[in-house]
Design a protein around this nucleic acid. Structure first.
Lengths: 154, 154
DNA sequence: TATTGTTATACTCTATAACTATA
DNA sequence: TATAGTTATAGAGTATAACAATA
């Protein structure tokens, strides 16, 4: 065949990420980043980042929940929750009340302001989420969420 | 009905995360974190973190790719790629060669060692990934990946 | 002895502004 | 003037060790 010595390879025209796209982890991460980016924009008016939103949401639906329970439910480290709780308390969105049965623990509750904020924020979050999967059918969306849960639940 | 004044609410027994679990973003993030945790363990013997793995994988399948193209393909910021490339070059896993057409750019290539490492690492990554979705059927796995791509591709 | 909440701290990841060399 | 690569730097996010108060 022809001369095959020291032929400079042509520049890459289109980057092939085929192998990565065959991995579940890569696709889940990319999808999560897409969703989180939209979420960040939509929650900016409320002054809530994703972690703050999820913390307040769990407190709203579980009044009196403890820090420990929050950490377990959301996969957070206790030390990282301390500053978060303190800031949300400063903003008067949540209250810390003594735990009815355990003197070491503190029950977390939303204030009236916090409840109002979260009612609006959760509605907005639901709308944003629907927008992200607007080009999926309702059944595709349900399937996607069901399969994702199958992955991370043991 | 009964007396309803100042009754202390009972402690939370089981934390309800139902609302968060109705959001795609939350589920995608949890699934991604699960997959990444397994990936971290499996790649530790190769000394590769997820970003390093994805960078080397793209270079392997696109010899001569530039930093800029890598960043666009993987969603990285150029400044964050610099140190990564430098370390991988120090480990003699990749080579930087002048770009054949653009004097500003540098073409990235895997060394022979890098190619050997990535052949093994990609095989291991595929096995790990299969293990994460082992309790899903082959068709469920394909559906999951297809729907995730539908989310993050525009 | 174990657990809740906390402090201090460090490490990773990611983001932005500004510079240089070349196009 | 626009782009590729780089430097310096700052901000999130996440992790561990160790402590006081209570169980």
């Amino acid at each position: 065949m022809g001369a095959a010595k020291a032929v400079a390879p042509p520049p890459v025209e289109r980057v092939d990420t085929g192998f990565l796209e065959s991995l579940l982890g890569y696709n889940a991460r990319r999808a999560a980043l897409t969703a989180i980016a939209r979420f960040l924009e939509a929650m900016a008016p409320y002054g809530l980042r994703p972690v703050e939103f999820s913390v307040l949401s769990v407190i709203q639906h579980n009044p009196g929940v403890t820090s420990r329970q929050l950490c377990a439910a959301l996969g957070l480290q206790p030390p990282n929750l301390v500053g978060l709780i303190r800031q949300l308390e400063k903003r008067a969105l949540l209250l810390r009340r003594p735990h009815p049965q355990d003197g070491r623990a503190v029950g977390l509750h939303l204030s009236a302001d916090g409840q109002r904020l979260m009612r609006d924020a959760e509605r907005t979050a639901g709308e944003i989420d629907a927008g992200i999967v607007a080009h999926l059918s309702a059944s595709e969306r349900a399937t996607l969420i069901r399969l994702l849960q199958k992955v991370y639940r043991r």
